Simulated scan of single mutants.
Amino acid sequence: MTLNQVTAQKVRVNLAERSYDILIGDGLLSGAGQEIAARLPGARVAIVTDSNVAAAHAKQLVQSLDLAGIASTTISIAPGERSKRFEVLQQVVDGVLSARLERGDAVIALGGGVVGDLAGFVSGIVRRGMKFVQMPTSLLAQVDSSVGGKTGINTAHGKNLIGVFQQPALVLADTQVLDTLPDREFRAGYAEVAKYGLIDRPDFFTWLERNWQAVFAGGVERVHAIAQSCQAKADMVERDEYETGDRALLNLGHTFGHALEAATGYDSARLVHGEGVAIGMALAHRFSSRLNLCSMDDTTRVEAHLRAVGLPVTLAEVPGGLPGAERLLDYIMQDKKVSRGALTFILTRGVGQSFVAKDVPSSEVLSFLQSVT
């Protein structure tokens, strides 16, 4: 496949023998078979997807694989966060084993973050590790969950508490497929794009404030925004693959956001992940202002941009209501970012000046939650 030099970009994730490319551009799905054959010669594949994505894109992928001489089987799951559970994990594992795929074969994740997290986990545990290819079809997955190797499923105790690190052999982000996303899903994914600017790229956040409408419209601005986001994440992953240091900065907004997802029972009708992250980032900035770490002007600026693109920024915007501050704190205490009972948050000294704050007193968090609920 010859990448379109005008719109397509490549980001390299450098992890020694586990290094891989992220290809970003319009229309890349039709050449997926050739890209996979070049990287995984002789491999057969299992395509893990959900019923919505399968209806829109699976036929094109299978045709591309057939043209490249790659045998495939398709395993479809129900769409939505509730598929990230043990029962569905077992279903997909059984499907891969029934297809008699071997360790040198590959699992392809064709879908959003749920499919990517689940399929990646399957590839990491079947036959003690198979090859893995990410083909993210949502904006959120293209800029976040498909890059970096985190996989997992949810439990009643919290989100992504069971999983493995499993780096893909290739990430192929066809930006054209994003045109089929509902507006709500695209907005939710955009929260993760804005996150990269808020972590440590203030110039990128300023660019987004000026160009977000063009990003939503598609074209070169969209490809640029996705490539910048992937490069930001790749840089973090290269420095800290297993999240023992500053890769934790990628969790800006997520400690609050994951608590909100758990509190809503992972009901996507009420709250999807990106919306939880948007509220979480607004809360992280507001909490930082309360602790006199950043000015309220920064918080107001962040909230204004998220509101401009149509994202929620307050707890009151979660449909159906939420439990009280004490129960929300319980959910936060279950989050993976808690170590031996000590609360860790990503806080900020201003736009693009996030940092890891360890040993945040739970009393401070509770008092803050009481002030915003």
Rank of each mutant, 00 (worst) to 15 (best):
T300Q: 09
T300M: 09
T300S: 10
R301C: 12
R301H: 06
R301N: 05
R301A: 11
V302A: 06
V302T: 02
V302G: 01
E303T: 04
E303I: 08
E303Y: 00
E303C: 07
A304L: 07
A304Y: 02
H305I: 10
H305Q: 12
H305F: 15
H305Y: 13
L306H: 00
L306D: 01
L306T: 04
R307K: 06
R307F: 03
A308W: 07
A308F: 04
A308Q: 07
V309Q: 00
V309R: 00
G310F: 10
G310R: 09
G310D: 01
G310L: 11
L311Y: 01
L311Q: 02
L311R: 03
P312D: 02
P312W: 00
V313F: 03
V313G: 03
T314W: 01
T314E: 05
T314M: 04
T314H: 09
T314C: 07
T314A: 11
T314V: 05
L315R: 09
A316W: 00
A316K: 15
A316G: 12
A316L: 05
A316C: 02
A316P: 12
E317K: 08
E317Y: 07
E317C: 09
E317L: 04
E317N: 08
V318H: 04
V318N: 02
V318I: 12
V318L: 04
P319S: 08
G320Q: 01
G320M: 07
G320V: 12
G321F: 04
G321T: 05
G321A: 07
G321V: 07
G321C: 09
G321I: 07
L322T: 08
P323E: 13
P323H: 13
P323T: 12
P323L: 12
G324I: 13
G324H: 15
G324P: 01
A325F: 10
A325Q: 03
A325I: 10
E326S: 15
E326R: 14
E326N: 12
E326D: 14
R327W: 12
R327V: 15
R327Y: 11
L328F: 14
L328A: 13
L328V: 14
L328E: 04
L328Q: 09
L328N: 06
L329V: 14
L329C: 14
D330Q: 15
D330H: 13
D330F: 11
D330R: 12
Y331W: 11
Y331A: 08
Y331T: 06
I332K: 13
I332N: 06
I332S: 11
I332H: 13
M333D: 07
M333G: 06
M333C: 10
Q334L: 12
Q334E: 14
Q334S: 14
Q334M: 14
D335G: 06
D335Y: 08
K336V: 07
K336N: 05
K336D: 11
K337G: 13
K337P: 13
K337W: 15
K337C: 15
V338W: 10
S339M: 13
S339H: 13
